[in-house]
Design a protein around this nucleic acid. Sequence first.
RNA 1: GGAGAGGUGGCUGAGUGGUUGAAAGCGCUCCCCUGCUAAGGGAGUAUGUGGUAAUCCCGCAUCGAGGGUUCGAAUCCCUCCCUCUCCGCCA
Length: 408
Amino acid sequence: MLDKKLLIKSPELVKKNLSKRGYILKVDQWMKLESERKIAQVNLESNQENLNKLSKEISKSKDDEGLKDQASSLSTLVKQDKEILQSIQKSIDEFLLDIPNLLDETVPVGEDEASNEIIDEKGEIPNFSFEPKPHSFFIDKIDRGRGIKIAKSRFTVLSGEIAKLHRVIGQFMIDTHTKEHGYEELYVPYIVNKASLVGTGQLPKFEEDLFKLTESPDLYLAPTAEVPVTNLHRDEKLTLEQLPINYVCHSPCFRSEAGSYGKDTKGLIRQHQFDKVELVKICKPEKSEDEHTKLIADASKILELLELPYRKVTLSSGDTGFSASKTVDLEVWFPSQNTYREISSCSNFTDFQSRRANLKYKADKGNEFCHTLNGSGLAIGRTLAAILENYQTDDGNFIYPEVLKKYI
RNA sequence: GGAGAGGUGGCUGAGUGGUUGAAAGCGCUCCCCUGCUAAGGGAGUAUGUGGUAAUCCCGCAUCGAGGGUUCGAAUCCCUCCCUCUCCGCCA
């Protein structure tokens, strides 16, 4: 959620920033709502003030029917004023929850991923003496559509060595982040409520991307650990000593993938259920840029240790997600596709999520909103897929990355 | 799932219709005293929001959430949520 004061003070500036996303801020509608609010609120509060004063007079003087009649009609008026203000406030809330975050100045401007900016390329792209197989080749040996049989399309079964590799990858990532990067490990609920999803920005706008529990209408399967982990401190006031907070959490993620029919239908790239190791940071506003750099480095480290070729990409204005101010994706090399694919998305949300989640810290002058960040460190299914492809051998097999051998 | 108890400020905990935004204690901040320390004395100490640009001033709201009764609700009524205890069930 954006700062209301900023929106009141300089709506045109906000509009200009958001237009880079292709979002058109309805300034006229906003100004109208806001001025209606002000009138309604001032009116209500002055009537309420008079009513309060009358009530006190009544409590002092006994049985003054005249005063009571006066208070009674004023009370009715206040009730009406409240309803008017409430309905305006509701419109304002809806309006505000619909607005995406302001973009960082350094975000490249462009309509879509074509304008993303490659900032770094690392690792050696493998040279195969044979036609590299897609990772689905290895998985299909066991899966053969069984995931679909058990659940539906976009579900996959792993077995034997590959299932083990999948388990071990997560272990390796968490170990690295806790032991070498100073993150605290968390285990969290995989089902989250509405308030949490509003807090991180998935709701109300993106409900169709989620799996909803029909028996408990306010509950959803978590689409990423970002939701439970960031919301851990929702409605809290953190102390300065607590910051910065660094959490790492391995969790399954559930996404409906509505609207992605026909995309990445083979293999592990796009599943309804996948595991991910997520990194979440909560910090003071002035530190978030530095923390973002660290976050990207921490996630990249995994790819480097796994010796997978990857690149860093700053997402363009049109490609940057709703809640993020700036996002840097890590993309790993997929030989069978002869291209890089996203494996991590590292975002600085500035105070956007904090405002929604009412997440503050006690600063010297008063309570301030924290900044939140998160990034995959990394998506486990895609990491597994990348390993299978990049480490495959000409006999239709694969070998293990060096750092994972001690886990196998 | 059944039965019961309960949700009040940073924390503990009073408060059953009218200066209670809320006693008291703890904690915290400042001051005083005590030649150190410990102890003691005094003052202060919620958040959000609006009028305004304003850390001053004034108002409004907030005692789990939402409704209702009333001139007036932390206090009475209804609905919901959550927590705890016992029983049942269960990993």
